[in-house]
């Protein structure tokens, strides 16, 4: 029985977290919990956009190229076979509803529709 992780607040420390953000944790939980599905809602639907990273940052003579990259995080989840859902109304609000804007394989769902499936999951949590 898989678990369901809901992400509504992403972007919580690009410099502190770097590779270990909520989506990296999702990949690990998928391995350890015997399966995971991810629902993105609110501004977190932007993580599913097919875009490049915002870029490296320079601090003094040090260039940090390893900041968190949420779209790559979602891409990796999809490559791992993890279902990634996004709530359709949030895509519209963020301007990301057009075809081709999201990574292939991201699944669209009506707001709240996934809750009808909560009984299918061993646990539901926010990530």
């Amino acid at each position: 029985m898989a678990a369901l992780g809901i992400v509504e607040r992403a972007y919580r420390g690009a410099l502190e977290k770097q590779f270990f953000d909520g989506l990296y944790l999702a990949a690990e939980l998928n391995r350890q919990l015997g399966g995971l599905e991810i629902l993105l809602r609110g501004p977190a639907v932007g993580c599913a956009a097919r875009t490049g990273a915002a870029g490296s940052l320079r601090f003094g003579d040090r260039v940090v190229r390893t900041l968190s990259d949420p779209p790559q995080g979602v891409r990796r989840l999809l490559a791992d076979g993890i279902p990634v859902w996004v709530e359709e109304p949030d895509l519209v609000v963020l301007g990301l509803a057009d075809d081709g804007v999201l990574w292939d394989g991201v699944r669209r769902v009506a707001a709240g529709a996934l809750a009808a499936r909560w009984a299918e999951f061993r646990m539901v949590f926010y990530l």
Binding site: V45, G46, T51, G52, L94, L96
Partner: peptide, 29 residues
């Protein structure tokens, strides 16, 4: 949600940090 409407109508100036925008997957918007 139209958060800027009142401010823009009043003639306020608004800057948007492009790095934050792109990081949030909005470069096509």
């Amino acid at each position: 949600p139209g958060a800027l409407d009142e401010l823009m109508d009043a003639g306020g100036a608004v800057w948007v940090d492009r790095y934050s925008w792109v990081h949030r997957g909005l470069s096509t918007v």
